[in-house]
Design a protein around this nucleic acid. Structure first.
Length: 588
RNA sequence: UAGUCGUUAGAUAAAUGGAAUAUCGUGUGCCUAUCAAGCACAAGUUGUGGGUUCGAAUCCGAUACGGCUAACCA
């Protein structure tokens, strides 16, 4: 049908007859002479309809409107002196149309294509029109490049791509499942996978040695700017490996993907322990593009006259008093702003937010009166304060302090606009705790199949269960959790002990994961792996502000698809088939 | 569920309690070299439903919808 894509028409075609096709990006009628910018998948080429060249084509062009579908044949010619358009790749030439076919018409656009200020609801309702823009095309071109690079890189490293089921078994723990009612087994449900975790471990028992999958995953939790109910994960698992082997594969894969997508990133990434990440940055996914580290000042506050602080400082195990220095903060922020920061951290459970200002004549602030001169000097030294700096304090339960001081760090960085764009800072966060206590219950921090650290005899040893570490790692990019993984438990006795520590009974374990535990009885190899969030990766590569931009047909925060109106009610007949009855909500 | 911001023409925005405006788009007409071209003209249920008022886009309740955030996300 076509001889050229619009983008490919160039000076070497001058004098030749070409056929191009696409959508009208703009039409300009100069009275007698009509110009049409024709766009196909990405680029634009200019058509000229001149009655002096072809009366019929010109007559047809009078009816042409934006986004009509055209097939145009004509001679390529150089644009005259001063008529070139440097903004277009094809700006040095144009096509003089002698045969024009209006293949299809279009209603006027319901919104201005390419105007990203347009309400997202409208853009999503007409998502297919937004996809027609160059910006969208470029995003999905990059996404495609990334997935192809993934397949090539892993193929070269000896990984086998295997598909695992979408209709599977509900596994409690973790996020809420999306359920699929069974017709054949009334009252029973399949679950959609939150990740192919258990299947990939079974593939290791199956002897495939190295597996990967670009896997759709489903989680029924509330949506965020970087979270969708269905998302894509690059899922990787390998046998006979230790942590270093897995990290090496992860770095090779990420390096290969980013390189193929045109980004220059290092081959090896920095590492940080989970506990350092929390103590220094108040986050298990610190953004390393800027500094703003926290400093511990609990010992100094223990000596102050303020009982609130000295009491908090008494329990060094449970509590923290952290200082966050903001270079030149006293010069940047007004006193009013500094007080306003307190409101920000209160939203995340902080009792308050103390601050000092470093003035010419020493440290000032509402809290200084509680400290001796020596201790004030100690604070200055510990925080390395210089004139013009401000320093903020958070005190209380360590998890709370980490959380709100960590958020405050990000908030400050955004406010001061010190986050460099166009930079990729990768970081491995290592040695996550095995368990976390939630409502007095021991919960797996990663998942219950994560290998805890053991001694040389393969025994789990710990003083406090909370301090027991696991062999697990997250890969963090610019403050976003790009993915994570772990070495898995492949021995029955360790798995049993972990279940026991978590308070999961043998019966419960059997019922929930019996198939996996059975499989491990038949020679499970040591194995481990990781998974990378593909959507988030593309989001970071393209600088998109929302994950919805990098998903072809995304859902809104209420988990609806505005385009198809899903979810929707179904026929009574379908419900009967599935042995389901809908309990009607009674209007109050 | 809560906090917060928002909802004005097809789109984006403006409007001290007193005539609803602008830009783009759309339609019609004019125009032979523009670069989303220019000129002229044309078309409006202020999300919905109440209230206060001589008079409401504006003030006050209510409600719907959307964005962001929190709880959730092994």
């Amino acid at each position: 049908m076509r001889t050229h894509y619009c983008a490919d028409v160039n000076e070497s075609d001058i004098g030749k007859s070409v056929t191009v096709s696409g959508w009208v990006a703009s039409r300009r009628d100069h009275g007698g002479l009509i110009f049409i910018d024709l766009r196909d998948k990405d680029q634009v080429v200019q058509l000229v309809c001149d009655p002096a060249d072809n009366v019929e084509a010109h007559k047809l062009a009078e009816d042409v409107r934006d986004q009509f579908v055209l097939i145009a044949t004509g001679k390529v010619r150089a644009r005259g002196e001063g008529l070139e358009n440097p903004k277009l790749k094809t700006g040095k030439v144009e096509i003089v149309v002698d045969n024009l076919i209006i293949e299809n018409k279009s209603l006027p656009m319901p919104f201005d294509l390419g105007d990203d200020k347009v309400n997202e609801e409208i853009r999503l309702k007409y998502r297919y029109l937004e996809l027609r823009t160059q910006k969208s095309y470029d995003i999905f071109k990059l996404r495609s490049k990334a997935t192809v690079a993934t397949r090539n890189a892993l193929d070269e490293l000896g990984f086998l791509e295997v598909e695992t089921p979408i209709m599977t078994k509900s596994t409690p723990e973790g996020a809420r499942d999306y359920l699929i009612p069974s017709r054949v087994h009334g009252g029973e449900f399949y679950a959609m996978p939150q990740s192919p975790q258990l299947f990939k471990q079974l593939l290791m028992v199956g002897g495939f040695d190295r597996y990967f999958q670009i896997a759709k995953c489903f989680r029924d939790e509330d949506l965020r700017a970087d979270r969708q109910p269905e998302f894509t994960q690059i899922d990787v698992e390998m046998s006979f490996c230790d942590q270093e082997d897995v990290i090496e594969i992860g770095e090779k894969l990420i390096h290969s993907i980013f390189t193929k997508c045109g980004f220059d990133i290092p081959e090896k990434f920095n590492r940080m322990s989970y506990s350092d990440a929390m103590e220094l940055y108040g986050s298990d996914k610190p953004d390393m593009r800027y500094d703003l580290k926290m400093v511990d000042v609990m010992d100094i506050f223990a000596r102050c006259d303020n009982e609130i602080f000295s009491n908090i400082a008494k329990d060094a195990k449970k509590n923290r008093i952290k200082a966050l220095k903001v270079p030149k903060g006293d010069e940047i922020f007004s006193k009013r702003q500094m007080k306003g920061f307190e409101d920000y951290v209160r939203k995340f459970g902080a009792g308050g937010l103390g601050y000092f200002q470093m003035k010419e004549d020493g440290l000032k602030g509402p809290l200084t009166k509680f400290f001796t001169e020596d201790d004030i000097q100690a604070i200055i030294d510990r925080c390395e304060l210089e004139v013009g700096d401000a320093v903020f304090f958070g005190a209380g339960n360590k998890k709370l302090v980490w959380d709100y001081m960590g958020r405050f760090r990000i908030y400050l960085a955004e406010m001061m606009d010190i986050i460099p764009k166009d930079r990729f800072e990768f970081l491995w966060v290592m040695d996550f705790p095995m368990f976390e206590i939630e409502d007095g219950k021991m919960k797996a921090m990663h998942h219950p199949f994560t290998m805890p650290k053991t001694d040389e005899n393969g025994k789990i040893v710990y003083d406090e269960l909370e301090d027991l570490q696991s062999i697990s790692y997250d890969i963090v990019l610019n403050g976003t959790e790009l993915g994570g993984g772990s070495i898995r438990i492949h021995k029955e006795d360790i798995q049993k002990e972990v279940f026991k520590l978590m308070g999961i009974s043998d019966e419960e374990a059997e019922e929930k994961f019996g198939f996996l535990l059975d499989a491990f009885k038949y020679g499970a190899p040591p194995h481990g792996g990781f998974a990378l969030g593909l959507d988030r990766m593309i989001m970071l590569m393209t600088g998109a502000s929302s994950i919805r931009e990098v998903i072809a047909f995304p859902k809104t925060q209420k988990a609806q698809c505005i385009l198809t109106q899903a979810p929707s009610e179904v026929d009574q007949e379908q419900l009967n088939d599935l042995s389901l009855r809908i309990r009607k909500q009674v209007q109050a």
